[in-house]
Computed example of a mutant assay.
Amino acid sequence: MSNHRKPTAGNGYRAQFLRSPAWFARRERWFRKQERLGGPLACAACDRPASKHELELHHLDYAGVSLAADGSWRAFEPHADLLPLHPYCHELLHRLIDRDIVLSRHRSRRAASEFALQRVRDKLTAHQGMP
Score class of each variant (00 low, 15 high):
Met1Gly: 10
Met1Gln: 12
Ser2Gly: 02
Asn3Phe: 01
His4Cys: 14
His4Pro: 01
His4Lys: 15
Arg5Pro: 00
Lys6Asn: 02
Lys6Gly: 03
Thr8His: 09
Thr8Gly: 08
Thr8Gln: 13
Gly10Leu: 10
Gly10Val: 03
Gly10Lys: 10
Gly12Thr: 00
Tyr13Met: 03
Arg14Thr: 04
Ala15His: 08
Leu18Gly: 03
Leu18Pro: 02
Arg19Ser: 15
Ser20Leu: 07
Ala22Tyr: 05
Trp23Tyr: 15
Trp23Phe: 14
Phe24Arg: 13
Ala25Ser: 08
Ala25Val: 02
Arg26Glu: 10
Arg26Ala: 14
Arg27Gln: 05
Trp30Ile: 01
Phe31Val: 04
Phe31Ala: 06
Arg32Gly: 05
Arg32Lys: 13
Lys33Tyr: 04
Lys33Gly: 06
Gln34Asp: 00
Gln34Glu: 06
Gln34Ala: 15
Arg36Lys: 13
Gly38Ser: 12
Gly39Met: 02
Pro40Tyr: 04
Pro40Ser: 12
Leu41Glu: 01
Ala44Phe: 01
Ala44Glu: 10
Ala44Asn: 08
Ala45Ser: 15
Cys46Thr: 06
Cys46Lys: 12
Asp47Ser: 12
Arg48Asn: 08
Pro49Thr: 06
Pro49Trp: 00
Ala50Arg: 14
His53Gln: 15
Glu54Val: 00
Leu55Ile: 00
Glu56Asp: 13
Glu56Leu: 05
His58Val: 01
His59Ala: 01
His59Cys: 00
His59Lys: 04
Leu60Met: 00
Leu60Trp: 01
Asp61Glu: 05
Ala63Cys: 14
Ala63Ser: 08
Gly64Asn: 08
Gly64His: 09
Val65Pro: 00
Ala68Met: 08
Ala68Ser: 12
Asp70Trp: 11
Asp70Tyr: 11
Asp70Ile: 01
Asp70Ala: 14
Gly71Trp: 13
Trp73Lys: 08
Trp73Thr: 04
Trp73Glu: 07
Trp73Gln: 06
Arg74Asp: 03
Pro78Asp: 14
Ala80Met: 07
Leu82Ile: 00
Leu83Trp: 05
Leu83His: 04
Leu83Phe: 02
Leu83Glu: 05
Leu83Ala: 05
Leu85Phe: 01
Leu85Val: 02
Leu85Thr: 02
Leu85Ser: 09
His86Glu: 11
Pro87Asp: 04
Pro87Arg: 12
Tyr88Gly: 02
Cys89His: 07
His90Asn: 11
Glu91Asp: 05
Leu92Glu: 11
Leu92Ser: 09
Leu92Gln: 10
Leu93Ala: 10
Leu96Phe: 06
Leu96Pro: 04
Asp98Ser: 05
Asp98Ile: 00
Asp98Pro: 01
Arg99Gln: 10
Asp100Leu: 11
Asp100Tyr: 03
Val102Tyr: 11
Leu103Gly: 11
Arg105Glu: 13
Arg105His: 14
Arg105Lys: 09
Arg105Ala: 07
Arg107Asn: 09
Arg107Lys: 15
Ala111Ile: 03
Ala111Leu: 10
Glu114Ile: 00
Glu114Thr: 04
Phe115Val: 10
Ala116Gln: 14
Arg119Pro: 03
Arg119Lys: 13
Arg119Gly: 10
Arg121Ala: 09
Arg121Pro: 07
Lys123Met: 08
Leu124Asn: 11
Ala126Pro: 03
Ala126His: 12
His127Lys: 15
Gly129Tyr: 01
Pro131Leu: 15
